[in-house]
Design a protein around this nucleic acid. Structure first.
Lengths: 211, 211
DNA sequence: GTTATAAGAAACGTAGCGTTCTCTAGGAGG
DNA sequence: CCTCCTAGAGAACGCTACGTTTCTTATAAC
């Protein structure tokens, strides 16, 4: 009796036949399982039990690391997002802005977007968690834009006096607004409009203190 | 043995001692209970069972009207928000804008804000529900702003050519952005900054098609 | 080899879900 | 007044998932 090649491969993939993973390897497997479940069923229908099954881990192993679903998902999502380092320098304000906003749109189309509402909602009941979610949401807005305008100022494209926190927030705010009101994917045309009709003209205005 | 006045009042409030409510009266009681629970425990921790208890109704009565928690909460929240009618006419673009944004900030500080993330998250799994949530979120942005700029154009404060959907969305987007990144209440100074530094200058720019 | 402990599996008690069933209050109509 | 219909209240059900505990043992370190 010949054994099909597929069956052999399947047996190899059965985690119960393989050694136990420990530490970082297990953590990675769990976080990967979270992302896969998030993509398949969304945040609301994601369950810790299903994640554990999918990761071939015991629930106790998950609860040893994360006290609740929201924290598990936060770690998985924040772990997979790119570092909030400097956006690419394209040589122009417009180029930098478009690159950054396209990256943000891509994030909203992925696990971060999937989890956005649910994480916010689940985190609201606890001040520490809410603080963490908000700080993260703020961070992704601020760091990129601050670097982009720093460069634009250095290039002489923008006057420092035109800058204000409200103005710097506008690009991210409009992307998230589109996400909430129309879902994903965010069309590139919308991104271009946000840059060309809103953010760039704003940053080219006279000082924010003038009206 | 004297019975405290509070106890007597409590007995009167015991719904099991009062006639059954029917139809609209029951519906109102249920929706009121939702709003109270939302305010006390937020969306994530709100349960249909607790709402039913609080309303002095049976779960079956709730499920006869609403198939799930998200729809129950959507109805309660949308029911209590003001009609999306015309914002007050203050005589100036700035006045109208500030009035509208203050109203939106107030909404975000109430049940609508409490439910925002959770409803979005729960609705994402079902295309019809997602559509409804998104349409509502869009509606609250569009109607007010369209009326405000129509008046501003009529007053000669704004040139039609300056208008674009992206620009009209900016106020609402920034308020929601503040909600997500810093919570509520939204300080009035922030509202004023959004109007004076962002929305009004944007609407006073040359045509959106120009860059 | 020994030791310590993290990992996997199973089981537990609980809460809430969504549903069903029974009884009856309440309204409509005659 | 009566009759009829059904919505409403309360209770119970089976199920899922939660968060926790217990037991066994694989695994790493020494």
């Amino acid at each position: 009796m010949s054994v099909p090649a597929g069956t052999v491969a399947g047996a190899d993939d059965d985690h119960r036949k393989r050694p136990r993973r420990r530490g970082a390897a297990l953590q990675t497997a769990i976080l990967d399982a979270v992302l896969a479940e998030l993509a398949e069923v969304g945040y609301a229908r994601l369950s810790v039990e299903r994640v554990a099954e999918r990761a071939g881990a015991s629930k106790a192993s998950l609860y040893r690391r994360w006290p609740s679903k929201v924290e598990l998902v936060m770690d998985a999502v924040y772990h997979v997002l790119p570092d909030q380092g400097a956006p690419p320098d394209t040589g122009s304000l417009r180029g930098d802005l478009l690159a950054m906003m396209r990256a943000v749109a891509e994030q909203l189309a992925g696990p971060a977007g999937q989890a956005l509402g649910g994480v916010l909602s689940d985190a609201l009941g606890d001040p520490d968690k809410a603080r963490r979610v908000r700080a993260y949401a703020r961070g992704t807005s601020q760091v990129g834009m601050h670097e982009i305008v720093r460069r634009a100022v250095a290039r002489g494209e923008v006057d420092v006096a035109a800058l204000s926190e409200r103005r710097l927030e506008t690009g991210h705010a409009l992307l998230r607004h589109h996400f909430i009101t129309r879902g994903v994917p965010i069309p590139d045309q919308v991104i271009v409009e946000i840059a060309d009709e809103v953010v760039i003209p704003l940053l080219r205005l006279p000082g924010a203190a003038d009206r």
